[in-house]
Design a protein around this nucleic acid. Structure first.
Lengths: 207, 207
DNA sequence: CGACCACGTTAGCGGTCGTTAACACGGCTG
DNA sequence: CAGCCGTGTTAACGACCGCTAACGTGGTCG
């Protein structure tokens, strides 16, 4: 209740509120398609007032992209470390990624759509975090499906990311089942795709 | 060799050339991120010269998106009609979509990224073509995997689109296997994902 | 109380962008 | 040859956009 804490919390909350709205607008109409006045209007202030909280429009995007890549990466690392065995680790990775895809739809969209709009240093950082995240997956998937070549596994991981990230692109319109049902379905589809890696070199063997 | 034919072919070729370069640039930097001068420079003319071929920047995007949705839809219809049985039809749909994803990468990216930048009528047309294309897939997948509910199948189809469209997002940097190997891998992953639909209601039955 | 500070406001600058206007020029046609 | 048409040029306009400047205001603290 101390004024400093309250002020700090208010300021931080303000920043977060701005970031949330900016993410939504960027995802809807693209980074270049959104003006600072719109972002300001979305949080009740107007235009240049945003510059009390951020250095500029680019800085908002940078913070969003670095944030989501970092959270994906660190959450993945934690889930793998806590998992009991490779299969459980893959299960946890899939589950965690689905949570991100369903809960932070806007960020997932921005994450692979507006990366080029970043300053060089930020873009390098984001790309590095993305690469490390992919490598976490590749290591786990290779352990679960040892028969596949590494390049195949890497391509498969990217493909499964595309699969899991498909729901954000469906827009907010309904049509797909509830959240938990969607999560279960995506989980099953992802593991099914990975399972297809096993029939790579020895087709028609299990029949 | 007749002058009229040559002129017509040159004109049409010019339009196609502009559309190709515009698609590439739009995919790289986003619709709003590309200026008409850049598009013109990419084809050797400069800026406003484009207006001899298109009504405006929006018209180029519209023609690109309507074109790709239409080609996907009609090619899908043809492949399904020619296929012998549901499994073969699904196989042909997957194969055809992979061809588009690998050969028209820029258009695949634009196809679900810049749809909102279209005039209402064009957007409705594209969405209708997309919907019809999805329904082709849903019908075939339901035939191959009769156990799954329709909403599940529809979500799965969208997810597999995300999977198949993942390679364009990898950018032109290498790292993934050759074209035919990638095609085979994607094909396998897609069918693997759909196969997971069967273990929906009756898990652990086939063991 | 008075100074400061966090947080806004409005006005305006500089640059970019899509588009139009006016003009030029080579080739086909009557 | 005269004239049109397809295709391109440059100049410029109007709108928009990101950002800065200058100013206001209410709450906190010495």
């Amino acid at each position: 209740m101390e004024p400093t804490r309250t002020a700090a919390r208010t300021a931080g909350g303000r920043r977060d509120q701005i970031l949330r709205e900016a993410a939504r607008l960027f995802a809807e109409r693209g980074f270049h398609g959104v003006g600072v006045d719109e972002i300001g209007a979305a949080v009740g202030i107007s235009g240049p007032g945003l510059y009390r909280h951020f250095a500029g429009k680019d800085a908002m995007l940078a913070e969003l992209l670095v944030g989501i890549s970092g959270r994906l990466h660190s959450a993945g690392r934690m889930r793998v470390a806590e998992a009991d065995g490779a299969a459980a680790a893959l299960d946890a990775l899939v589950r965690g990624h689905i949570d991100f895809a369903l809960d932070d739809r806007a960020l997932i969209i921005l994450h692979d759509r507006e990366l080029d709009r970043l300053r060089d240093s930020d873009r390098k950082l984001v790309r590095q975090l993305q690469r490390q995240y992919v490598e976490q997956w590749v290591a786990v998937v290779r352990e679960v499906h040892p028969g596949a070549a590494e390049s195949e596994v890497r391509a498969a991981v990217h493909a499964v990311f595309g699969l899991l990230n498909s729901t954000p692109h469906l827009g907010p319109h309904g049509g797909l089942p509830g959240r938990s049902a969607t999560a279960v379905l995506l989980h099953r589809l992802a593991l099914g795709a990975f399972a297809a890696l096993d029939s790579a070199h020895n087709r028609e063997v299990t029949y």
